[in-house]
Design a protein around this nucleic acid. Sequence first.
DNA 1: AATGAATGAGTTTTCATTCAT
DNA 2: AATGAATGAAAACTCATTCAT
Lengths: 218, 218, 218, 218
Amino acid sequence: MTASIQAPKKKRVRLSPEVRKQKILEAALLEFSEHGFGAATVERIAGRAGLSKAGLYAHFTSKDEIFEALLTQVLRPRFEAEQWQLLPGETVREAIDRFIDLSYENLMQPRTIATLRLLIGESARAPDAIKRWRDEVILPYQRAQQAVADLCVASGWMRESALTRRFELVGAPMLYAALYAMLFCEGEAGEEVAALREAHRQLLHELLHNGDAGPAAQ
Amino acid sequence: MTASIQAPKKKRVRLSPEVRKQKILEAALLEFSEHGFGAATVERIAGRAGLSKAGLYAHFTSKDEIFEALLTQVLRPRFEAEQWQLLPGETVREAIDRFIDLSYENLMQPRTIATLRLLIGESARAPDAIKRWRDEVILPYQRAQQAVADLCVASGWMRESALTRRFELVGAPMLYAALYAMLFCEGEAGEEVAALREAHRQLLHELLHNGDAGPAAQ
Amino acid sequence: MTASIQAPKKKRVRLSPEVRKQKILEAALLEFSEHGFGAATVERIAGRAGLSKAGLYAHFTSKDEIFEALLTQVLRPRFEAEQWQLLPGETVREAIDRFIDLSYENLMQPRTIATLRLLIGESARAPDAIKRWRDEVILPYQRAQQAVADLCVASGWMRESALTRRFELVGAPMLYAALYAMLFCEGEAGEEVAALREAHRQLLHELLHNGDAGPAAQ
Amino acid sequence: MTASIQAPKKKRVRLSPEVRKQKILEAALLEFSEHGFGAATVERIAGRAGLSKAGLYAHFTSKDEIFEALLTQVLRPRFEAEQWQLLPGETVREAIDRFIDLSYENLMQPRTIATLRLLIGESARAPDAIKRWRDEVILPYQRAQQAVADLCVASGWMRESALTRRFELVGAPMLYAALYAMLFCEGEAGEEVAALREAHRQLLHELLHNGDAGPAAQ
DNA sequence: AATGAATGAGTTTTCATTCAT
DNA sequence: AATGAATGAAAACTCATTCAT
């Protein structure tokens, strides 16, 4: 009873480098996203990661290195699941629903919002990494989406429109919702995001649905 | 030792408090948006504003006060012109074009992008100001837009859709473009933004245009 | 009515240099004694003296100069009245009463206490001035007192004692009271000082009074 | 480049927090008493304590905290030895001598004089601490002294007088000497203090000695 | 791997002092 | 004589980073 009250002095915990590094990066993401790189302190990152400042320096040689490691980790492609596609035997309507659900699920995670906020807030600090990310992750992803969309249109599954011609716009309302979440942090944005999500779903249904036609109608 | 060789000693420039304060806020917006609040330095802000550090402190009593003053200035409503509306004798098509042109013109200004980037990066620092901004500026603006849209739909000028039912989405692609500009700073985003803008225009035309109908068709 | 409430902007008041200088020194004494030389600010001194910082510099060229001017003014001899002496036809008892009353009246003035506090607090800053003060003001004063005392003893008016042999001790309880006032500022010391004063008076009566004797008794 | 020429880089000296804190307080007393709180610099205190400014801030969070810690330490009661009292088998004369010797020994230590000077110079900065010190240290001490004196008088050991009625005055000449030491720092006051001390001793002997009487004479 | 104590290089802030009016 | 705006120098305080254990 005494120990729990009077002794927050954490016993020295020894973890494997991999585990600790991951903890540190996790902590850094929170800290950077909350305060910005400049106002973030190594001490707080270390605290959140459960070790001392000096301990942290056994794993990373500088605050900058943490930032870079964080970026590399966070900007790695992770889009497989949310990829827009038509699974065999699936209708466009179902594909839309799956896309909306998976994408919002992913994008609206606090961790993802934090990442986005960090990228935007510190865009001037790592323009190259961000550019590379765009070229190697975002653009390929969008091209793949566009290809699928073109196919769907060509095969009559989807109605042609300004949207299918520039299919990256398919996610615009979702990013608008993400912006909302970035600005009005802490749950307050929850309801609004949910509403936007449904409106988004509806909109896609209306925009992409090909009346009663479709290959099946041939 | 002569003036021609080593005299970068700027003559003391004396300005009225209003002018100087404005210069300082202008400088602060740049500095904050570029480095984030934490990594911004008062010295650089002062330099950009054309006076010394100590001189700056004659106008603002702390870095925080500068930040707050900046927010108050920058979050003041300035939406009149871009308000979605139907001017007398104007077709929906023309209203859409005007909306797109005015809004992109405004939103894509470097100053506005910088402001948005700052808001997002520092959203945790001034949640109250941001919340007030949403309640007193953003929400009223959206409500007014929705009202106009409802009217247009009721009178048959615009086709009903998921978009008209949640009309705030009308700007989503534009904010997506703004996000692009925030992330990939420095003109590189220019072409992409221009393309998105046209796609956005097209999309609105297709979505809102009421076939050949409309009141005129009555 | 409006002016009195909304406009504390003091109209530029122009005073003769002598008057203004005196006001400044008065203000400086308060400020220095309250905060110490180091923590005193020229701005506050100027404010207390009723002009602006820059205005003050028209009268004194530096903070140090103010300090020195203050010292010279404040360390000037002002002891005539309180000089220990026997006025013609006066008994020792009456002389004691007069000495006590005049001395306490003088020493316990807030201004005098402030001066003492300043001297002690800043004794390291102006050791020479203080030494000169001792040599030119204090010591002569004490010598004169001692001379009178010796005379009184020689003529049988006063009883010889350790006190008359080192007559500067005659004021010791008073300085003890002054110490009290310096430490426990703001009136709280008032009662204690009054009590000490009466005890002091009694003590001198008892110590110096020569029984029923005296020259008259010869 | 060799160590013998230009190597004032002090080796990092690592001390336990207790030792270091004590060193810092010691240094602070010197620095504060020499320059006053306002003109004292943390850097100089750190230097005197043998570490860097930043190192100092690992032990105290602000200049003010140093000041307060210093006060608390320095205003702790330390009077046992100097307490006025009659040891068994001791004459009043011997008690007086002991009192004088112990008290002057203590009060005239440079450290004590420095403390007093600091208290007076900064009395406005910490009125509460000083008041508490008076109530909890000084007044009890004086009451104890008075009680002993009353006893001595009642038992005939000491002659009744204005002094025994307000026994706190027993130390007045000593404080007068301390004042002297505070003002005319640096040993110059030495002789004067020694002379005052002997006069003080004489005075007490004369004042308190009960002729040849005393309980023993009964 | 981990830490507490220590530090150098800033950063914010203050302030005595100057300048133009 | 007086002032508001401006400045250089210094002081308090912070923080990324190192060292010895």
